[in-house]
Design a protein around this nucleic acid. Structure first.
Lengths: 124, 124
DNA sequence: TTGACACGTTAGTACTTTCTTACCTATATT
DNA sequence: AATATAGGTAAGAAAGTACTAACGTGTCAA
């Protein structure tokens, strides 16, 4: 890793990805997402599972919405929320890049490929 | 989803998982993790990439450490940090439970299985 | 059309996070 | 031994977050 001569600000891609994780980084919001796993739900249905007030839930839903994790559909006087996979997938793929840090098999495979590569280089 | 009669507090499992996502929910910390992807690094090597002061980086590293995402090894006067896969894996597996929300193929498969199940039920 | 229900927004408060500066200890270098 | 390097910790300021109570709008039901 070459040391930088001028230190750039944290890149915007990291900032965006961080906002996504931050949206998941609250127990109530994480719970909301889990509750939505079973399908779409109205706000009052969701709020019934929590001790905090309904406005608090509304605010959490707003955070999830602006992170792109949920969508709102109006239906009569209800607003039904449902999970939106696109951003969740982004989170998933960010983390998957670290798979070798927990998958021993993958790490060994990488080491092997690295050795192969070095051998080719040597014989070339 | 049966409505709860008494609303329990957000379960501790959600709280723990949220702490993990919260640790990733900051641009600088996310960047630190990315920098550690290439192997272990000393604090001053990491800090060189940032505009914020070194103590700020120390503090971010502490957050990552208490979330279990990194480990510290002392080597002379340096402290080298490296990624720890275990907690990263927990985050990965939490998100993977939502795979069907972005994988159309998986969603169709689930629908098919559901129809099969319903048919068996009907003929039984 | 009056009342109840669903839900968002606002204002204000308490708490938490993030940063900097100052300072301290431990290790390496000369 | 004196000095430089590495890096953690503490205190305090500034900004952000999460909550509640109060209120407003739109929808349904009697």
């Amino acid at each position: 890793m070459p040391r930088p001569t001028r230190r750039p600000p944290v890149p915007p891609s990291a900032a965006r990805q961080a906002r996504l994780f931050a949206a998941l980084g609250d127990p109530s919001r994480l719970r909301l997402v889990e509750l939505l796993q079973g399908g779409d739900r109205a706000v009052h249905e969701l709020a019934a599972w929590f001790q905090v007030s309904r406005p608090a839930i509304s605010q959490h839903l707003r955070v999830l919405r602006s992170a792109g994790l949920v969508r709102e559909d109006r239906a009569g006087r209800e607003r039904r929320y449902r999970l939106e996979g696109r951003e969740m997938r982004r989170a998933y793929e960010w983390i998957r890049r670290y798979e070798r840090f927990w998958d021993e098999r993958l790490r060994r495979l990488e080491a092997t490929l690295e050795r192969e590569r070095a051998r080719e280089e040597h014989s070339a």
